[in-house]
Design a protein around this nucleic acid. Structure first.
Lengths: 337, 337
DNA sequence: CCGCAAATTGACAGCGCTGTCATTTCTGTC
DNA sequence: GACAGAAATGACAGCGCTGTCAATTTGCGG
């Protein structure tokens, strides 16, 4: 019924073990043999059984993507990462399981345990903000399960992928300055998220570099949601001297800012320049379209998964690769009034 | 190292097979025996190996959630469904794999084949718009893999979960009529999606029931995105006689309508009532908050998964359960001007 | 053409569980 | 109290693959 490894072996005239070697890309197989086996596999449409491989061997070819579904601000972001991870897994014949972790109490530790020991997970992709949850990372290490992080806050000894968000934020704010803006406000994301810190740091750096003052009134707290963007903007508009530009730490909040501006009768970008971060679909759906920083989430998921699988194969030491950002200059920003 | 079924058997003084029976909830085990075995499992922290179970038995305890990542308008929706499915799977010790399907050409058939035969998938959760892709359903049937659908267009012989979207749309539009609106427009979603059809039908039904005319100019095509909502609204505003209320087939488009209204200087809800559908997070982030229909996506994912697992266990015949909608009447709608 | 190390290949057991079928232990009945 | 039939349990093989280690083949210097 099902084509087994043994069938391929028989068809090729070699032992099952040799077919297994080819399957696992072991080096000690003569090239001519490998070719014959591969050809047979192909023509017989052989597909190894993950269950059998998992049971007999030490590897499961399973990768888990962990995410925090407790306070899930940006499901678009996670969905894109997930797709990228799946892409990479597909290409290397790995499978992926998506695993939401509710970070209440210590229950999540048990979930991690269950996951790892049940399914023999080979490796884990960790997404923000889980990337900086020490208890989780510690547990993974105890299990001996390698992980790759996406945009981790602490980068030493971590493999995965990141973007120079601070540099990107700086570039964005510098762009505003070049447009003639001098009163530039920033809406910060959820405290302690890496993204929030870096973007704030980039904002401050740009101001400092340009020799502009860093007015604390111009830095208000948000929480990455549309609503918090609206609230933060209202707060800024209530200031005695309004900013002429607002850099929100993500697109959702920027959309909130635009809404609030509108509510107050401010025309974007004529009266107020607005920019965000992430380049979510929202950015181009708003009117005017939002100036923002493109964060290649999907690509990042893919790269993180690739890094992980490299490590699993024992090839390379695993790196924290950096993906390039790109400024998407659109119509929500213009010269200062 | 690892606690095996055999260890539990030894500890309890029964044969491995009996432990296996308890594990699989077979009926032919004396109750006292079952209790002892369960106690031992608990105290030894026994966790069965999915690989071994998959290899030896006919079941894999794996469920796949299929989604279309080609044109993915509403990743929030899918993310919520996914979480619901995961919830249900967790509860019944099943695992879930998320599987995006690119519906280009015939490649996706191979992907389905690979999925089912590689992983021995026990069952599949199908999400819109895949629910109505005949080639996919046929292939699943050929593989003998049961599936549960979420909001399928064709309901006969299907198990899964649905909502009476037509009724919900009717109720929403009826609400507008009760507020005194007579010129009510509708922005349709992507053609052929079940959601689009039902919501349009509900709109028409409400008008007909109230004896209002069905002006074709007041029904414009959208595609479930913010941008398409903006375009559609502009089209409606350009009409000689403007509608006083717009029912968009989803929240994203409704947000687009609100934006366009704003752009044109129309105050919502004073000059124009707007309502959407789905109750995405966006609905409460807009200002004014959006009147919409709550679609319990997460709950629906959970229920679909439960239906599927019931079927897998051979219990019950599997149903298409209907979840209740609820009208979320908020500030974006008010009495007609 | 031989001997030896290196390169390749193969034999075999067993991973942890379940399907099949045989066996034992209960029931209730006359 | 013996007996049929049902209920409960067990023995055993084997799912499809890989780890271990042994066997074979190859390449090469002399």
């Amino acid at each position: 019924m099902r084509v087994r490894l043994e069938d391929v072996a028989r068809a090729t005239g070699v032992s099952p073990k040799t077919v297994s070697r080819v399957l696992n890309e072991e080096s000690s197989v003569k090239d001519s043999t490998r070719q014959r086996v591969l050809a047979a596999m192909e023509s017989m449409n052989y597909r190894p059984s993950p269950s059998a491989r998992g049971l007999a061997g030490s590897r499961s070819f399973l990768v888990a993507m962990l995410y925090d579904n407790n306070n899930n601000p940006a499901s678009t972001y996670l969905a894109e990462i997930q797709d990228g991870v799946l892409d990479a897994c597909d290409a290397h014949r790995y499978s992926m399981m998506a695993c939401p972790l509710r970070m209440r109490g210590q229950d999540f530790i048990r979930r991690v345990d269950a996951l790892v020991s049940d399914h023999h997970i080979d490796g884990v992709i960790v997404t923000p903000p889980l990337t900086d949850y020490p208890a989780l990372l510690k547990r993974l290490q105890e299990h001996g399960v390698p992980h790759a992080s996406i945009s981790p806050l602490h980068r030493e000894g971590t493999i995965g992928v990141c973007m120079d968000e601070q540099q990107a934020a700086k570039a964005l704010v510098t762009h505003l300055i070049e447009l003639g803006h001098r009163r530039i406000a920033h809406i910060v994301g959820i405290a302690n998220h890496g993204a929030s810190r870096w973007r704030l740091a980039g904002y401050k750096e740009a101001l400092a570099t340009a020799g502009l003052p860093n007015d604390p009134d111009y830095v208000v707290q948000g929480e990455f949601t549309f609503g918090s963007g609206v609230m933060a903007a209202r707060q800024l508009f209530a200031l005695p001297v309004c900013p002429t530009a607002i850099f929100a730490a993500n697109d959702d909040m920027a959309a909130g800012v635009m809404w609030a501006a509108n509510e107050r009768g401010l025309k974007v970008p004529r009266d107020l320049s607005v920019c965000g971060f992430d380049d979510t679909p929202l950015a181009t759906q708003l009117w005017p379209p939002l100036t923002t920083v493109r964060q290649p989430s999907r690509e990042m998921g893919k790269l993180a998964a690739l890094q992980l699988m490299e490590k699993l194969r024992g090839r390379g030491t695993g790196l924290l690769v950096q993906v390039p950002y790109s400024l998407e200059l659109r119509e929500s920003t213009s010269v200062a009034p």
